[in-house]
Nucleic acid binder design. Structure first.
Length: 359
DNA sequence: AAAGCGTGGGT
DNA sequence: TACCCAAGCTT
């Protein structure tokens, strides 16, 4: 396609928009253009599939229907609503940003690139998505789909894992975007990437913009886009304690407010230095960290959990409490089997929970 | 610039 | 099985 050629740009827009209007999926965040709903959906959709997001989005909007509702909510309730969705800092950043909109912008999501980009968790893609979808502004919204589609359209071998490539593609989108309907244009490109121009088996034969695609013309669509390979997750060995007190309550602990699984709850655990005396390492950790005397019992089971960048190998022990301590610290509580459901746990520890609570 | 940050589904 | 991937952002 000639990007300079006004006629073919118009043709491209028409072909894409016509296809989108006839083939777009009926999704819960497409019911209206409420900036808050668009915002929540865009945050949830970061690195996450549409089918995964749908039930989370519906539950979240039931619980927090407005900016106001989310702004005044307890952080723990927000994390509980996010439980199982992953990338939990998204939830904390979203609430922080919503609180800022509530207080600084009178509850109205700002509609300028500069202001909206200052909000926590709102980067180049999300700002463009909200501005175009909720406010109809002709701003690029370049996600993984758009990078794949455009790489193929122009037959570019630029590595899409590089930031520079995204900026370059934003420039291309700026020349292509429909000023009449930026929302459908951006969503149309993403929808096309999700339904037609897929990574491994693009359906070029039924593609509405096939005639504009240089990669198809040169039969190189399967070579594109170019993307650097990911590294293997680094392995970590953890030892974990399932401890009950005399009342039958279990000890759980809230993780640090930054980093991996921030502010979520877990069973007490520690990374192993080595493979020797792991029971002793656990006992020392429990004494130092929680101030409790324990006797390490038998190994209950082992569980593996793979994250995007690391892999846990967790060995869980049944632990007997020798000392009796009611209150340990602010981040540790004894909790009954029933009450534990109120706390947000990562999937890794849900595995441990479902196994241990049966015992 | 590159690493850290989750999870579930597809091949 | 062991990858890769999915509407990215922060540091």
């Amino acid at each position: 396609m000639q990007l300079e050629n006004k006629t073919s740009v118009k043709q491209f827009q028409h072909d894409l928009l016509t296809w989108f209007k006839g083939n777009q999926r009926d999704l819960p965040w497409r019911q209206d253009q409420d900036p808050y709903k668009v915002w929540v959906s865009e945050i949830m959709l970061q690195q996450t599939r549409v089918d995964t997001v749908i039930p989370f989005f519906n539950r979240f909007l039931e619980k927090f229907p407005t900016i106001e509702a989310l702004a005044i909510a307890e952080e723990g309730d927000v994390l509980k609503a996010w439980e199982g969705l992953g990338y939990y800092s998204r939830a904390r950043n979203l609430q922080a940003a919503v609180r800022e909109v509530h207080e600084q912008y009178n509850g109205v999501v700002p509609n300028s690139k500069a202001e909206i980009s200052k909000l926590r968790g709102v980067g180049p893609y999300t700002s463009g998505a909200i501005l175009s979808i909720a406010y109809g502004k002709p701003e690029p919204a370049v996600d993984g789909n758009v990078m794949r589609v455009i790489s193929r359209i122009v037959a570019s071998y630029d590595d899409i894992s590089k930031q520079k490539t995204r900026v370059k593609i934003e420039g291309i989108i700026s020349t292509l975007i429909s000023v009449e309907d930026p929302s459908s244009f951006n969503q149309g490109l993403m929808e096309l990437g999700a339904l037609i121009c897929t990574p491994t088996s693009p359906a070029c034969s039924i593609c509405p913009i096939q005639k504009h695609c240089k990669a198809f013309e040169e039969k190189v669509q399967l070579e594109l886009p170019v993307k650097a390979k990911k590294k293997k997750p680094k392995e970590k060995k953890l030892v974990c304690a399932f401890i009950k007190n005399a009342e039958g309550q279990v000890l759980i602990h809230q993780r640090h407010s930054t980093g991996l699984l921030a502010s979520l709850w877990e069973f007490p655990n520690v990374e192993l230095n080595n493979d020797d005396h792991i029971e002793k390492q656990l006992e020392v950790f429990l004494r130092n960290e929680f101030g409790i005397q324990t006797s390490i019992g038998k190994e209950i089971f082992r569980v593996e959990h793979v994250f995007s960048h690391l892999k846990w190998d967790v060995t869980v022990f049944e632990v007997e409490l020798l000392s009796s301590v009611k209150k340990i610290n602010e981040r540790a509580v004894w909790i009954s089997d029933l009450d534990i459901k109120a706390y947000p746990f990562p999937v890794s520890h849900q595995k441990i929970m479902s196994h241990c609570l049966k015992i």
